[in-house]
Design a binder for these strands. Structure first.
Lengths: 135, 135
DNA sequence: CGGCATCCGTCTCGATACTG
DNA sequence: CAGTATCGAGACGGATGCCG
C-alpha cells in the first residue's frame, strides 16, 4: 500500500520526461549552441583555422579553462578538429569540420532574427520593467 | 610603477569583452532559447494558448518555480502574453505573441539540423569516447 | 606555446511549504 | 487554480599555479 505513491509518480514522470529530453536531439543541440562560448568559437573559426593562442586573444574574456573545455567538447562532437604540429614550441590548430561549418547558417539565422527583432524584445522588456515600479 | 599591470589589463579586456557580449543581440537570443525550458514552452504554446496547469502537465518535469520564472521571463520579453480571467477559480492563460511565434521557424531549423546531423555528432562522440580508453 | 589540476565563489535549480 | 517564499544542493565558471 503506497506510502508515498504521489512522490513515486512524480519520480516516474520525471524520469520519463528526462528520458524524453535526453532523447530529443534538438535539445542537445540547443544546449550546445546555447553555451556561452560555443557560438563565438564557431564564429571565430568561420574564416579559417586558428591556433590556441589566437583563439585565446580573439575571445578576449575567456579563461583557458573554458577555452580548452569548449574546444574539447566541440572536438568530441566532431564539429571541429584539433591538429598538433610537433615543433619546438608545440603548435595546435583548430579548424571547423564540414559538420561544424553546417552550424554557421543556423547561427546566421539567429543573428538575423536577433538583429530584426531584438529591439522589440528590448522595448518590451523596458515596458515590463517600467510598469513594475511606475506611478 | 605598475604593481599589477597585467592583471589590470586582463580586467580591462574582460570588461570590454563583457560589454561586447552584453551588446550582442544574438548572444542574448541564444541565451534565451538555449534555456532548458524556453524552447519546450514555446513549442507547447505553438498550437494555441494554454493555462498554467495545462502547461504544468504538458512539461511534466518542470517545477512550479521554473515554470513561473520562465513564463515571466518570456512575458517580459514580449514573447508571450498572460491574461487573467477573474473567475471563481482564477484562470490564467498564456499565449504566444506574434514575436514569440516568430521563434518557431528558428526552433524548427534547429530541430531540422538536429534530426539530420545529430546521428553524426553522436557517432563522433562515441568515437572520441572510445578512443580515450581503447587499446 | 598549449595545456591540466585545483580551489573557490556564484548563481542556477529543484523540493517544499504556504497563500489568495 | 495559480502562484510566492524560502532553503539547500550542485553545477558552472574564473583565477591561479604547475608541467611538457
Amino acid at each position: 500500500m503506497a506510502t508515498s505513491t504521489a512522490a513515486q509518480r512524480r519520480a516516474a514522470a520525471k524520469t520519463e520526461y528526462d528520458a524524453y529530453l535526453a532523447d530529443c536531439p534538438a535539445r542537445q543541440l540547443l544546449e550546445r549552441i546555447g553555451d556561452k562560448w560555443v557560438s563565438l568559437l564557431v564564429n571565430a573559426l568561420a574564416d579559417g583555422p586558428l591556433r590556441y593562442g589566437e583563439l585565446s586573444r580573439r575571445l578576449a574574456g575567456i579563461s583557458q579553462k573554458m577555452l580548452t573545455q569548449t574546444l574539447r567538447a566541440l572536438e568530441r562532437d566532431g564539429l571541429l578538429t584539433r591538429s598538433v604540429t610537433p615543433a619546438v614550441p608545440v603548435q595546435v590548430e583548430y579548424a571547423l569540420t564540414p559538420l561544424g561549418a553546417g552550424l554557421l547558417p543556423l547561427l546566421g539565422a539567429v543573428v538575423d532574427w536577433a538583429e530584426r527583432n531584438m529591439p522589440e524584445v528590448l522595448a518590451a522588456r523596458d515596458r515590463y520593467d517600467g510598469d513594475t515600479n511606475a506611478v
